[in-house]
Simulated scan of single mutants.
Amino acid sequence: MELRVLRYFWTIAEEGNISRAAELLHITQPTLSRQLMNLEEELGTQLFIREKKRLILTEAGLYLKDRAQEILSLADKTEKEFENQKKQLFSGVISIGCVEANSSEVLAGLLEEFISEYPQVSFNMFSGTGDDISEKLDKGLLDIGILLEPVQTDKYESISFPDKERWGVLVQKNSFLAQKEGVRPEELYGVPLMCSARPEVQRLLEEWMSVPINEMNIVGTYNLIFNVFPLVENQVGAALMIEGASLNLKNEQTRFIPFLPEVSTECVFVWKRHRVLSPVTNAFIKRVAHAFKA
């Protein structure tokens, strides 16, 4: 006999009416009626006498109601005690590194929910490049990292974010490229470009343009995109980046133009393989895995 079914029976007994009980339990009346019939069949006895619009408990029903009250009260008390104990004992700090991408908003939502449930938990947030975050993960200075592909993940356990990031160029709003809905490789030939210093990103650009990096008009490289916005505004060059980084900063003097054909990559949630993590970190990883599977 399940606790759920006992709760259904007890609510019906209290209300004396299937419709009102179904409303309180937030289930349909036919479902509740079927559950009651199954319970009576399981116990081999009638629990209610149907009189007009009211249900009257039989002797067996009265006995079961008393026992159900005891069982449900004990179950509720036990569950509450475990919940209180979990909130008191479950504490610690999670150190997280995150690149500039839309994934930061997803991470913020998950952290807000987690910390609301476990008020003893706190976090340290580090923003940086993928290389910075990988280095700190390897040294044990970070528990978790949010990295942007292309990235080497063979030494990490990883979970892919559900949404992909589009690549393109950030241009000044008066640039001829700003009028386009998408930019093709041939339209960037000779255009002054600023690109990430990461070799993986430069290879991505080479593959899309089908041109070696040393034959492009690369006027500069950067690590954090925040520093590039003033350069784009002053038309020093167009900056290669992901769409999420431009949306987060919401600069009215610039515009993001996606690549055509489209190039998209995933953000990945990573932690060091074979490293012993704290219970708090493990619980947060499980929360993320569950959220992304939902």
Rank of each mutant, 00 (worst) to 15 (best):
M1E: 03
M1D: 02
R4F: 11
V5W: 04
L6P: 09
F9S: 07
W10K: 13
E14V: 09
N17K: 10
N17D: 12
I18D: 02
S19N: 01
A22L: 13
A22K: 07
E23G: 09
L24A: 12
I27M: 01
I27V: 06
T28Y: 10
L32F: 09
E41V: 04
E41Y: 14
E42K: 10
L43Y: 02
G44I: 14
Q46I: 09
Q46E: 08
R50S: 12
R54G: 11
L55H: 02
L55W: 03
I56T: 08
T58W: 02
E59S: 08
G61T: 05
L64T: 05
I71T: 12
S73P: 02
K77Q: 13
E83F: 04
G92A: 01
I96V: 09
S103F: 01
E105N: 02
V106R: 12
L110V: 15
F114T: 04
V121A: 05
M125R: 15
T129H: 00
K136F: 00
L137T: 00
L137W: 00
G140S: 15
L141F: 15
L142T: 01
I144V: 04
I144Q: 01
G145K: 01
I146E: 00
V151W: 02
T153I: 04
S158H: 03
I159Y: 15
I159H: 14
I159R: 15
F161I: 04
F161E: 03
R166E: 08
G168H: 03
Q172F: 14
N174G: 11
N174W: 15
F176A: 04
E181I: 13
P192W: 10
L193K: 06
C195D: 05
Q202H: 09
L204K: 12
L205W: 15
L205A: 12
E207S: 02
W208G: 12
M209K: 08
I213D: 12
N217E: 14
I218S: 13
G220T: 13
Y222D: 04
Y222H: 03
N227M: 09
E233K: 07
Q235W: 00
Q235L: 00
V236I: 05
A238V: 05
A239T: 15
L240E: 07
L240H: 10
M241H: 15
I242W: 00
A245K: 01
L247Q: 11
N248A: 11
K250A: 08
N251Q: 06
Q253H: 11
T254M: 01
F256M: 11
S264E: 14
S264T: 11
C267F: 05
V276P: 15
S278G: 03
P279R: 02
T281I: 02
I285L: 06
V288D: 05
H290M: 08
A291S: 10
A294N: 08
